[in-house]
Design a protein around this nucleic acid. Structure first.
Lengths: 150, 150
DNA sequence: GTAACTGCAAAATATTTGCATCCTT
DNA sequence: AAGGATGCAAATATTTTGCAGTTAC
């Protein structure tokens, strides 16, 4: 086994153990997918990437478990394809806090979590009590802007 | 026919004609649903409201037509239930522009378009070109805050 | 009259549930 | 060994497509 893969495997296992989840092949594989790339993944994308190694039902259940434990979070979408992305350390069992922005590229359809962007304060009309703010920006991502210039 | 219903009927018809859409029973009924209440509606909610008068397929196609013509717009969600809401006059055939905020009540699950709220400018990292910003706020709405006080 | 719209049937797709078996701890 | 996780089958729900009949203009 190459040293890099071994290191990722260790990290994945550690993350699962931290959430008191049993370390199984499917959980390791799916969690690894998220660590291997910066963006978000839909159920369908995950299914394609893992192939037919795991049952579709297992993927559904694994994703749900990860969301419940605060390992990943959902990103709303207008195309009936919920995407999931890794959480930061502040999230834990049963609670989520995400004040970051999600960027969806209209060209390559990748979704990014922009942690470094400051989320603005939104002033709502009287009577509305905000709990959670979700900001979705659509446009062209770094990658696609660069490749268009060539 | 009561005068109010007649007035709504006229408005609905006018809206459809303005978009060069034939005025049919299902289109009138569905568009009226949106005019009758301030919030957003999911496909499922519409189906419940209209009963079995129209085929489910007709509802799908009607909603799609309305979106294409700029009569309504979609609101992203994290629960695989896209909601639709009326557009303002700026939207038209094939193009949408919505810089307003959507508020989803966690208690009554109604979705509101808050047109009066100023959407903040979001500063993105280098390389990202924003096209459209979508802001979703979750919390407790006016109605639910008031009724909780009683 | 003609083009567009609708309803029905059916296909394709997505999601959930129950249960027996297997694996992790 | 025990509880939890998985795979399989099947039920359920959602969305799309084709086509024939109907309606709006």
């Amino acid at each position: 086994m190459p040293p890099v893969a071994a290191a990722t495997e260790k990290k994945v296992t550690e993350l699962l153990k931290r959430q008191s989840l049993s370390v199984t092949a499917s959980r390791k594989r799916i969690l690894q997918l998220f660590l291997d790339q910066p963006g978000a993944l839909s159920h369908g994308a995950i299914e394609k990437k893992v192939g037919s190694v795991f049952d579709r039902v297992t993927i559904y259940r694994t994703l749900q478990t990860f969301v419940d434990r605060g390992l990943i979070h959902t990103i709303p979408s207008a195309d009936n394809a919920i995407r999931y992305a890794l959480c930061k350390d502040e999230c834990g069992d049963g609670h989520h806090r995400h004040e970051h922005i999600h960027f969806v590229c209209q060209q390559c359809h990748h979704t990014y979590c922009l942690d470094e962007v400051v989320t603005p304060v939104i002033r709502l009309p009287k009577g509305y009590s905000p709990q959670q703010v979700e900001i979705l920006v659509q446009g062209k991502c770094k990658q696609c802007t660069v490749s268009a210039r060539r």
